[in-house]
Design a protein around this nucleic acid. Structure first.
Lengths: 145, 145
DNA sequence: TTTGTTGCAAAGGGTTTGCAGGAGA
DNA sequence: TCTCCTGCAAACCCTTTGCAACAAA
């Protein structure tokens, strides 16, 4: 019922981004959409039934999706890129549960003050930052207790 | 003259960490020590004269150094690990100049407040975070103007 | 038809492993 | 001497590239 006025859309519009609608692309988007955790390219492939796109196709499309702001690559300690669907096109960060892998988006607006402090303390002009947060989600906290 | 009481030491003590003193190890430390920017393994090798350690040796030692908190790996967009010497063993972050590559350590203590906000907003219990900052250093700002 | 996309295979390239020889203590 | 380290070469493995066949528009 709610069609919000802001940028968060439920399904990326391929055509609007100048991309052709192909079964592979829509399948990849569907997998990302259905997952609440970062997925490697192999993960994505594993979640498809029947004829699956080739690895290069998945990489190429994820790259485009990331460029459109529809997804983002999070590289973990194992140096493997895992992709998450970005629901918001605002600046945001991802908080990943170390227990179950579930990821949520976080508006780290409170960070801005700290960034200004850093600019003043160092004399640097900040251009961008990468912040990845890790923790334990409510469900995993309960399970642990 | 100043021997500070805190943890910042000028030269890591290999023996104290249970590591043997080898020429390779000390050479790698010396290169890290002398550089004010993150260095890839190849960079490190390139900065050595004469007989240089093999690539695997450098990787193995950097891993140990990182484990001791003497250095840290920063992985950029190109997926290549670059290592910086950590002067402080406190929790800190690195701010890298996109102009010249120079890196400085930043105490992002101001971040703590934001982190608590995030815990309250999400219900997650935060365990760790990775924050890498990028910007333009004072010198590069001047050169640009 | 035109042009973006996919598939396959192969190459790339940073990083890791195995193991024998060598150096620290 | 006893381990720890190093060197070399090869293996790993995620990711990218090239190019011909294919499908969207």
């Amino acid at each position: 019922m709610s069609r919000r006025a802001d940028d968060s859309s439920d399904a990326p519009d391929l055509r609007q981004a100048g991309l052709r609608r192909t079964v592979q692309r829509e399948a990849i988007l569907r997998v990302l959409e259905a997952s609440d955790r970062p997925l490697s390219v192999e993960d994505i492939r594993a979640r498809m039934m029947g004829k699956r796109p080739g690895i290069p196709t998945i990489y190429r499309n994820l790259e485009r999706f990331a460029h459109e702001g529809w997804a983002e690559a999070l590289v973990g300690d194992d140096q493997v890129a895992r992709f998450v669907r970005c629901r918001s096109s605002h600046h945001h960060h991802h908080l990943v549960c170390e227990g179950c892998g579930r990821a949520v988006e976080v508006d780290a607006c409170g960070l801005l003050g700290s960034l200004e402090e850093i600019e003043q303390a160092t004399g640097f002009k900040l251009t961008r930052h990468v912040l990845n947060l890790f923790g334990t989600c409510p469900a995993c906290q309960r399970n642990r207790a």
